[in-house]
């Protein structure tokens, strides 16, 4: 299954797809997209890389176990919900910066929540897929 073409392509596709996934994540608030789909796209990027170069090399490339993204994402999401509590607002109350940031657009707590979702989805998907494929190869 390992072809030169796919291998070479995947090396270029990986950063592109990752960039695309971030794009999807950020545009989610105004146009179709969001953390969930973005996370899935990012996972596909890594899965494609693993298909082309073998699971080992993707794992080496990642350095850390993809599962590590789960607690990071959960923490970000939870924090974005908890932070409004500090200023006396209800849990998960959305709050925004007044002016839009260039490129990204409006920045607010829901965006951070979505970023958390993004990481959790990447972590979950890659953990499941990598675990199953490792077991299958044994």
């Amino acid at each position: 299954m390992r072809t030169i073409i796919l291998k070479t392509a995947s090396n270029y596709l990986l950063p592109l797809l990752l960039l695309f996934s971030v794009f999807i994540l950020l545009r989610g608030h105004y146009q179709p997209g969001g953390g969930f789909v973005g996370g899935l796209v990012a996972s596909i990027a890594f899965v494609l890389h693993a298909f082309a170069n073998g699971l080992k090399s993707t794992q080496e490339f990642l350095r850390y176990h993809p599962g590590i993204a789960i607690p990071i994402g959960l923490t970000i999401s939870l924090l974005s919900g908890v932070l409004p509590l500090l200023s006396g607002l209800p849990f998960m109350k959305g709050s925004w910066f007044k002016d839009p940031v260039p490129v990204i657009g409006m920045v607010g707590s829901p965006l951070f929540f979505d970023i958390g979702v993004f990481f959790v989805v990447i972590g979950v998907t890659l953990t499941i897929l990598f675990t199953i494929s490792e077991t299958a190869q044994e």
Binding site: H29, G34, M92, G108, P110
Partner: peptide, 26 residues
């Protein structure tokens, strides 16, 4: 402050549901 209703529902109006869902995923 969002134009994509689906996403706003997910991250804001029903954000609590989403939070629980990502925990379920975990």
């Amino acid at each position: 402050k969002g134009k994509n209703i689906v996403n706003v529902i997910l991250v804001d109006f029903r954000g609590m549901d989403t939070l629980v869902e990502i925990i379920v995923l975990t």
